[in-house]
Design a protein around this nucleic acid. Structure first.
Length: 622
RNA sequence: GGAGGCGUAGCUCAGUUGGUUAGAGUAUCGGCUUGUCACGCCGAGGGUCGCGGGUUCGAGUCCCGUCGCUUCCGCCA
């Protein structure tokens, strides 16, 4: 385990300055240096590696600060002691009394921070013996399933441990920044009421109320709004959230943590300013963290205070995504009108039937070999499910090329290149189809083209705000539903709700996006009961539902509610990005599997009949 | 709910066209080794090839089903 790189915002004491109890240790393993030569020390830790030379035995002893070599010599300890340490399993916990010695000439190990010294053992005690390990801690090819089954061992490996410490440091940094800005931290209930909106709830049966259930909160949404109405003005919480939905690589299947915040008497720009200071500040502090050795070099980031705002509709057009990865500079443009006026029947028909043709211009792509264009076409069909290989037109040595060229006039082609923002040497790709199905193809094609043609930036955190989300959307069954958050303030307020087509109404609703990951959602909230009632009515919820299911907010809005808003960045995702990982499980100490199981604790599990009876629950036969 | 990938010793993997007793590295155990640092050398034990069924004279290998992990779609206000 390597010593952590010190970071300016880490409020923790540096490794090696921990208060120590001399019953167990006088020094930390990783803190010993040449300056300790001749010091009598007591250290304690895990037997990480052993090298047995029949007489002298070396053990690398590991604690949270690092590794130090301890030397067992038969002359000093006797044959029985050497026999004992030889048969003590790796990962046993040892307490060592010894003397720090400079290593002899040619015996130092420059790969170790403590490599100039070793501890000459005078006495030792095995505090806990370890069985043979299910896998070697130094083996980095062990599958995740096994490592999660023995997560307590997995957490001993230095990169995993370093990531957990990063997580702690990130949360500490968030708290310090928020306290510095005058926010207060609150705790809100873990057992609350089920909500008809949003994700599937985890339910907890009530013993005292037969047939009734608590729900674990999907977010502290209503509570933080109530705190605003109570007048606290600035709230935050590192809040556990629970959603019973299927997992993804970047989405934990049950519980996750949000850095939840809310402010009163603010507009959208005020929330953005706090977010850029705090989230941006955390990234500035930790962007170069490399405790797991993954980053190739220093990381850049979008400067705080200049994170671009992109309207939701604009994001869908330009990036085919509401969480665009801006490391790829390529943008999508609409060229439906040009193709509608062309002789190419396939695209003409698609436009005539309400579809669109979108184009991605790639500078310099004419240098790609023919085989690359074929690979892209096959990949788009096989992996992205494109109905046909994306068409393309090349502009090379004064001439336009590609199978689609013959359907267009030169003016039309030139107009296309101008719109796509590329000139000679460039290639314009086309994808035709209906929205929104076409977005999935365009989104991944844009990134692939950028990567393949060298336009994709690495070693940078690219932030942007996605703003002006629609308030409502059409559900699969044709009805109108909330598109994001039912508590958002619609732009135009009650007047918009009463006069506009609901599907055209925007909300003061926003997301923060970094490198293609949705880092948080937020909104300026509605604080008026009549707006709440009207918005829910449009989404198909009657007055009685609002009054019963959202009683707290409904009541509170009648007794003086300030304008307020906030957001909730995902702690797991922030740490994941800083750790240069794409798996959220890597930044969670005890993550669940994809199917929501804890392999170590064997959860979920059956319970006794007695427990069920107390809870008035009967399990139906399958 | 749907689609793909993976599953052989404690662990990581190899295993030819279906053909004798399923191999290697590592770990474990035993022996040797007083300066290594992923120490080294010699030897031993360790297998229901995820599970079930089928085809076949014969299945780790082919087919069907199923279970587990995982990636993606749906889902995630």
């Amino acid at each position: 385990m390597c010593a952590m790189t010190a970071t300016p915002a880490t409020p923790h004491a540096p490794a090696g300055s921990l208060p120590l109890n001399p019953t167990y240790r006088t020094h930390m393993c990783g803190a010993l240096r040449a300056a300790h030569d001749g010091h009598t020390v007591r250290v304690a830790g895990w037997a990480f590696r052993r090298r047995d030379h029949g007489g002298v035995v070396f053990i690398d002893l590991r604690d949270t600060t690092g590794v130090v070599q301890v030397v067992f010599k038969p002359d000093a300890l006797g044959a029985a002691a050497i026999e004992d340490i030889t048969h003590t399993g790796l990962e046993s916990v040892l307490m060592i009394d010894g003397v720090v010695r400079l290593r002899g000439e040619g015996l130092t190990n420059p790969k170790m921070a403590t490599g100039e010294i070793e501890i000459d053992v005078r006495a030792f005690e095995v505090l806990s013996r370890a069985d043979p390990l299910p896998y070697a801690l130094t083996d980095d090819s062990v599958p995740e399933e096994l490592r999660l089954s023995y997560r307590f061992l997995d957490l001993r490996s230095d990169d995993v441990a370093a990531t957990m410490m990063l997580r702690s440091d990130v949360i500490a940094s968030i708290r310090q920044r928020m306290w510095g800005l005058g926010f207060r931290e609150f705790q809100t209930p873990i057992l609350t009421a089920s909500s008809p909106e949003g994700a599937r709830d985890f339910l907890v049966p009530s013993r005292m109320h037969p047939g009734k259930f608590y729900a674990l909160p999907q977010a502290p949404q209503q509570f933080k709004q109530l705190l605003m109405i109570s007048g606290f003005d600035r709230y935050f919480q590192i809040a556990p959230c629970f959603r019973d939905e299927d997992a993804r690589a970047d989405r934990s299947p049950a519980d996750f943590y949000q850095f939840d915040l809310e402010m009163s008497f603010v507009e959208q720009k005020d929330v953005f300013a706090v977010a850029e200071q705090v989230v941006g500040g955390v990234f500035e502090d930790f962007k170069n963290w490399n405790g797991n050795g993954r980053k190739a070099g220093a990381m850049a980031m979008t400067p705080v205070g200049s994170w671009p705002h992109i309207a939701y509709d604009d994001a869908l057009l330009r990036y085919a995504s509401d969480k665009p990865d801006l490391r790829c500079p390529l943008e999508i443009v609409d060229v439906s009108d040009i193709w509608a006026a062309s002789e190419f029947k396939v695209f003409k028909d698609i436009v005539a039937q309400g579809g669109v043709v979108r184009a991605i211009g790639v500078k310099g792509a004419t240098t790609q070999p023919r085989s690359w264009f074929d690979t892209i076409g096959k990949w788009a069909q096989d992996e992205l499910g494109a109905p046909a290989a994306p068409g393309y037109i090349t502009w090379k040595e004064g001439a336009f090329g590609g199978p689609l060229t013959k359907f267009l006039s030169e003016e039309q082609i030139r107009a296309m290149f101008a719109k796509a923002g590329v000139g000679e040497g460039g290639v314009v790709f086309f994808v035709a189809g209906k929205e929104p199905g076409i977005y999935k193809i365009l989104k991944d094609l844009r990134l692939r083209l950028g990567r393949d043609c060298g336009h994709y930036e690495t070693s940078i955190y690219k932030f942007c705000w996605i703003v002006d989300f629609p308030m409502f959307e059409r559900a699969d069954d044709g009805s109108v539903d909330f598109s994001h958050n039912p508590f958002s303030m619609p732009q135009g307020g009650l007047h918009a709700l009463e006069t506009q087509d609901p599907l055209t109404i925007k909300a003061y609703q926003y997301d923060l996006v970094c490198n293609g990951y949705e880092l948080c959602s937020g909104a300026i909230r509605n604080h008026l009961p009549e707006v709440m009632l009207k918005a829910f009515r449009i989404a198909g919820y009657g007055e009685e539902t609002v009054k019963s299911k959202f009683r707290g907010l409904w009541e509170a809005f009648h007794y003086g509610a300030p304008p307020h808003g906030g957001m909730a960045p995902g702690v797991d995702r922030i740490v994941m990005l800083l750790a240069d990982s794409n798996m959220v499980r890597e930044v969670i100490a005890f993550p669940l599997t994809q199917r929501g199981e804890d392999l170590l604790m064997a959860a979920p599990s059956a319970v006794t009949e007695k427990q069920l009876k107390e809870l008035h629950i009967k399990v139906a036969a399958k």
